[in-house]
Amino acid sequence: MNIFRFLGDMSHILSFLLLLHKIVGGKSAAGISLRTAEMYAIVFCTRYIDLLWNFASLYNYLLKLLFIGASLTIVYFMRYGPSQKATYNADEDAFPVQYLIAPCAVLGVLINQDHSSPFEMVWAFSIYLEAVAILPQLFLLQKQGEVENLTSHYVFALGAYRALYLLNWMFRFMTEPDYQQRIVWLSGLVQTALYCDFFYHYYQSKKGGLNKSVKLP
């Protein structure tokens, strides 16, 4: 464990707390993409299947349960919560996720770390899917133009988590002799690159004060 990975995990937890605060606490799903939330639920339910046999680290075990629980809770409230359904904009949340899920599934089968292991295929699929899971959310924000304050912090924390993981992989590559993780490194680069535009507008709007809403052109 290094500081980059620890901060990345904390940023990830923060993004969940912000989203849960908005959806469950604030009873509002305005500006939030259900499609992104559902893809994240798929990402965690597929990647963390090894909860059934990998007890290597209690820290990882607990956070895996937390991430699966939080992502399923968010999907549940967005689908069945009366006030959340009322504030969720299904028409605008229209990104064709089948064009994200299908290629990631094919890539997961073709490019993974052990072609004899179904878990490795599923694991690689979840890494690829996570890299593009934010697209429906960014697409929705782009359509709406203005990003509500809490939503902007949620998206920022979610983007920052994988950016910190990039630093973690760089650090491990430099400090651990034969550490090599091409799949997560490339996927993490793509994932973080997708946030660059948002990061820019987030910074522009927040440098005048944390409570300003983020405007996307």
Binding site: N54, N60, F67, Q113, W123, Q181
Partner: peptide, 10 residues
């Protein structure tokens, strides 16, 4: 790369 048990990250 790091198949199997050495997946020590989230």
């Amino acid at each position: 790369d790091c198949p199997g048990a050495c997946k020590d990250e989230l």
